[in-house]
Every structure is written in structure tokens, then in C-alpha cells.
Nucleic acid binder design. Structure first.
Lengths: 217, 217
DNA sequence: GAGTGGTTACGTGAATCACGTAATAATAAC
DNA sequence: GTTATTATTACGTGATTCACGTAACCACTC
């Protein structure tokens, strides 16, 4: 028997979820709640295995709620149901301690599966979330490939050398000594770099160098 | 009917996979291959819906093989089976065009499920991969939390404000006008910032601001 | 009431910025 | 073979910024 708590802002939705979930004999709804301020108290009194949290938006306020709920009952497994699949936000729910997430395309089977997974101590990820994560990762992988096109290919080897040293916090004077050239030459190189790349000032130049992996943060 | 191609370095493994997969009446093994150099030719002659690629290691050589296979047959759905779950490498297979991935803990049911998913035009992710991705993301999320400790907590709100504007490439004069203060005050704030954080010069200040997410690259 | 830290502001000399010009050499284009 | 372009070198100049002081005023703490 798996004990469930259900939260939703709307009472009708709670009833719908309750009846749907009660169709599975393993599930028992031990409490419901439609007032976020009462949720913590209810959770204290009626320990459930799993809390189904229907959130219309995943705000910072809701994230804090999740953290508080887990302080009240560290064993509670929280399953968030939300249409808001903004990647940053969704992933932050996991950071807050949510164990499962169902998006707007989830089916009843997925919901049941998620409940079982959480009860067995596993997290539950639906494909939407995985896609989000994967796309995120792929797009991050793509970024270094786009190095060609940022403008670095316009710079000569010498110019990159000066940019690298300067980006490593060497002063113009130090660079001049290192390369056995005049400090004025160092300045000229930097000027040419800024002209070529159409950079307003040296702050932009640091950013450019970081963007092109010429220097590290 | 789903046509399968099977690749493995070991013939025994190919036979094992063949017999296992043939147990499902929907599946038909149309070709097998245990020589990577022949794989491209075989794929040309015997078009399969899905190619099951058993890879012991996911090397750059194997990644190139995947890319070449997809050039030969852009419609081929490649399902990689490998124990090598090094996150970077695994994710690069997806970048190379792999549609499904099964790790060392995968079951036969998952394999069948993966084949059906791929045939239906969907990707297949098993939980291992999702965990890899999620842990990756969470650990990346954790980094900004380490802001406390980098030194930003030493700065006052005003100092952060000046640092932010300056990091957005505004000149001292522009910042002074924006904040209705003297340009000398702006300079003083920057001096105090560098003193507090023990930064050698402004290049370091840009890096610091980026490190603390005060500005973007 | 003395101490601490934040915000404001100025003085000063050195360094850097931002924008020129310009010589030399190498390479590409005509 | 002359011309054009670009890289590298270097200087001039005025404005700006850096880096380091000092210092007044306020708020808060002990």
C-alpha cells in the first residue's frame, strides 16, 4: 500500500486526481490540500509516502515550499506535476529535492509508474525532461565548435599571443619585456585587436578572450 | 516487421544477440557483422531499420564510424550498447547521431523497448543516461552556489552594482551619470573592490565578475 | 563614545586607452 | 614586376583609467 498526499490549488483537480489514483488498489490517498499555507501542517500530521504536487508555475516561492516540506519530512518523496517545463526552472526543482517530474504530456500510466518508482527509492524522469537535458548538453557541446565564427580567426598569431598574455593579467610593460618589444608595440597590437573585432573597450576584450578559450576565468 | 543489423567484435555475442532478438516475432535480423571495416559495405547492401552497435569502448574512431554510417544511410537508427558510460563520451555518441543508448545494466526488455522506440522515430534514453545528465546538470547548478566563498560576499550592494555596470562595458563616466555620483566615487568603489578581493588589476576584476555570475561572457 | 564599514569625493602620478601616423617586410593579386 | 594588403614594429597625443593616498559623513555596533 502506498500512501499519497495530493496538493493542488483547485479542489476539482484534487478530486479528479484522487478518484483516478484510487482506481489502483495499491494507492491510498491519505490527505489532500488546496492551501499552500496548510500543506506543511498537513504533512506533519498525516505522513504520506509520496506527495503529488500540482504546481501551475514553478516559482521561487514554490521552490522554497519544496525545501521546507523536505525539512518537515525528509523521507517524503515529492512528485511535481506541472506544465511549466522551462528547463532552468524544472531542473531547479530537482535541486530543491523533488524526486519525480511529470510534464504536460504525461499519461496516467506514467503517473502510476512514477509513483511506483519513487516508492522503490528511484527517481522518475519522463522523456520530456531527458530531452531537455540532452538538448541542453548538445547545445553546450556545440558552443566550442562555434569558435570559428566568433572572430578569433581574424587575429594573427602575434595578436593572439598578446591577447593571451594580457588576459593572464600581465601589464603592458611585462608583456613588452617578455616578448622583447616596445610597450608601444604592445599597445598597438591591442588597438588592432579592438579595431578588428569592433570592441568598445578592454572589458569587452577580456570577455572575447574568454569566449574563445584563449584565457580561463 | 523491424529489420535489424547487429555489429559486435565477437561472433559469439552476435549469435547470442541474434537468437535473443529473434524470439520476438516482430524482429528480423537482416545482417550481422564482426569486422568494423566491412560494416559500411554491409549497411549499403542490406538496408536495416535499426543497427545495434555493440561497442566495448567508445573511442574517437568509433564515433567517426557512427558519423560515416549515417552518411551511408541517413535513415539508419543506431542503437549503441556499451558498458562505457563515461558521461562525456556517451553524450558525444548522441552528438554523432546515435538515437539510443543502453548501458551495462540494461535488460532485454529495455533492448526491445529501445528497438520499438527507435522504429517509431523516437529516441531511447535509459535511466542511467538520464542520471548522468541530471547529475551533470546538478553539479553545474551547484557551482553558482559556491559563490559564497569566492569573495563576493565581501562586497556591498553598491560595490556589486558598480562592478556589474563596469563589467557591462560602461565607462566610469557613464556609470557616474547613471548613478548620479561623481566619477571619482566610481573610481573609489572600484579601488575598494580590488583591495577587498586582492585583485592585481582590472582584467582580474572582469574574471571575478564572470566567475560570480555578476556579468555574462 | 570609540570602532567599524559603507558611500561619497578629491589629489596625484603612473599606466593605459583610443585614436592617429608611419616604416619595414612578407605575401597575394593584377 | 608593380601594386595592394596585411603583420609587425614603433611613436605622438590627449583623454581616461589605475592605484594609491586622504577625508568627510552616516549608520551600526560594542
Amino acid at each position: 500500500m502506498i500512501d499519497l498526499g495530493i496538493y493542488d490549488e483547485h479542489n476539482l483537480a484534487i478530486q479528479a486526481f484522487s478518484s483516478m489514483l484510487s482506481a489502483i488498489s495499491d494507492f491510498r490517498v491519505v490527505f489532500t490540500c488546496n492551501d499552500r499555507n496548510l500543506l506543511i501542517t498537513k504533512l506533519k500530521n498525516k505522513r504520506a509516502h509520496i506527495l503529488i504536487l500540482n504546481l501551475h508555475d514553478i516559482s521561487v516561492r514554490n521552490l522554497n515550499l519544496i525545501v521546507q516540506l523536505r525539512i518537515v519530512d525528509p523521507n517524503i518523496k515529492i512528485l511535481v506535476v506541472s506544465a511549466n517545463q522551462d528547463e532552468e526552472i524544472v531542473l531547479k526543482t530537482f535541486k530543491a529535492g523533488v524526486k519525480g517530474f511529470l510534464g504536460k504530456d504525461a499519461t496516467f500510466n506514467e503517473l502510476a509508474e512514477a509513483v511506483y518508482s519513487l516508492r522503490n527509492g528511484h527517481d522518475y524522469f519522463n522523456n520530456t525532461l531527458t530531452h531537455i537535458l540532452l538538448n541542453r548538453y548538445i547545445s553546450r557541446l556545440d558552443q566550442p565548435d562555434q569558435e570559428t565564427g566568433t572572430g578569433i580567426e581574424l587575429l594573427s598569431a602575434r595578436q593572439i599571443e598578446i591577447l593571451r598574455l594580457w588576459g593572464e593579467s600581465y601589464s603592458n610593460q611585462e608583456i613588452a619585456e617578455k616578448l622583447f618589444i616596445s610597450i608601444r608595440t604592445v599597445e598597438t597590437h591591442k588597438n588592432h585587436i579592438m579595431q578588428k573585432l569592433n570592441l568598445k573597450n578592454t572589458v569587452d576584450m577580456v570577455k572575447f578572450a574568454i569566449k574563445c578559450n584563449i584565457i580561463d576565468v
